[in-house]
């Protein structure tokens, strides 16, 4: 649909869940004017309900035949989570938590680091999420006002606020629930992949600020770029929920299997899966196994003192190489 496609790769093995990306995005774009509740970028713990709460259950995307599927819009109380105040004074003196609107059931980042399983065999990993700037965006297809478009030069999916009528069908149809409703302007708003920054040769704020250097940004057709190499050459970066049929353009290097599980005596169980492959496959698809195998073999290669272009990239030793936006930084 677009001439070029800008994409992002996130290495989940290096994400420490510090939420610096979330804050970078929020301070840049969503801390005002009806956007206050939105997180264009969020980092959720997996396994977990994510944000908005249980977003995978709201439907949307495309079916097996390529037809748009119906979806629902999350509510603030059940999906996004309404903000609340703590009764600090009482809590300090031993009282229970009280809240005017009852005890909240969900909130952004509600189940952070809860994960799955019992200690010492528990597991979780962090999953940062932004808009996927899909090649077949369900939001764009669903919009009855023709307000959503995909930029030709970089494939960034944007909302034309002049045409948006606030009908929220994009929100219902986005299977990732990454379109939000501005409750002051009554318009749909979403991650813009920091296009004003990109136009000045700067990486998106979330990627630029990432302390773990997990985010690579570049064009998918730029064969010299690290994004191309991770996605197409080494095939270790996979889209999230490709089964939703929107052809997403944010890719993830899946988490390695982690340390083995322990038996009742505290001894490691050989060959055990801490993070079950089946769970990773439910997120990143059937190519996960091959991607993990590739990573493991490259690690093995490196251990033997041989070179590995893949690991040299993933270690992000040269930060400037991570962002290839096709132009010099203007700022």
């Amino acid at each position: 649909m677009s001439k070029r496609q800008l994409a992002m790769v996130m290495d989940l093995n290096k994400c420490i869940g510090c939420q610096t990306c979330t804050v970078a995005c929020k301070t840049q774009w969503t801390n005002r004017n009806g956007r206050d509740y939105m997180y264009w970028n969020n980092v959720e713990s997996r396994p977990g309900a994510g944000y908005p709460n249980k977003w995978e259950e709201f439907g949307g995307g495309f079916d097996q035949q390529g037809n748009l599927r119906d979806g629902e819009i999350p509510t603030r109380s059940k999906g996004y989570g309404d903000p609340w105040d703590f009764n600090h004074e009482e809590l300090l003196h031993g009282d229970d938590f009280k809240n005017k609107s009852g005890v909240p059931a969900v909130g952004p980042n509600w189940d952070e680091e809860v994960g799955e399983g019992q200690f010492p065999n528990s597991n979780f990993f962090y999953l940062p999420r932004i808009c996927n700037h899909c090649a077949n965006p369900a939001c764009l297809a669903a919009c009855p006002s023709g307000a959503i478009f995909k930029r030709d030069q970089d494939g960034v999916v944007l909302v034309d606020l002049d045409r948006c009528k606030g009908q929220r069908l994009c929100i219902a149809s986005c299977p990732y629930k990454k379109v939000y409703f501005n409750t002051k302007l009554f318009k749909a708003e979403k991650c813009i992949l920091c296009f004003p920054r990109i136009e000045k040769g700067l990486a998106p704020a979330c990627a630029d600020q990432c302390v773990g250097r997990i985010r690579f940004v570049g064009y998918l057709d730029d064969k010299e770029g690290q994004v191309y190499k991770l996605v197409h050459k080494y095939k270790v970066a996979l889209p999230l929920h490709a089964d939703y049929g929107t052809v997403p353009n944010i890719y993830y290097v899946p988490p390695l299997k982690g340390p083995p599980k322990f038996d009742g005596d505290g001894k490691p169980i050989e060959g055990s899966e801490r993070i079950p492959l089946s769970y990773l496959e439910s997120l990143f698809g059937p190519d996960t196994k091959a991607a993990l195998k590739r990573l493991e073999s490259e690690i093995e290669q490196r251990k033997q003192g041989k070179g590995s272009e893949l690991l040299d990239m993933l270690i992000a030793f040269k930060r400037d190489d991570m962002f290839r936006l096709g132009k010099e930084r203007e700022i």
Partner: peptide, 23 residues
Amino acid sequence: NLHLNRHYQKGGERDAHGAYPHN
């Protein structure tokens, strides 16, 4: 009709970035 990509062609030739054509 509404946006043509509401129905895309699963078997159709995808573009350089993997986008499916309209059905």
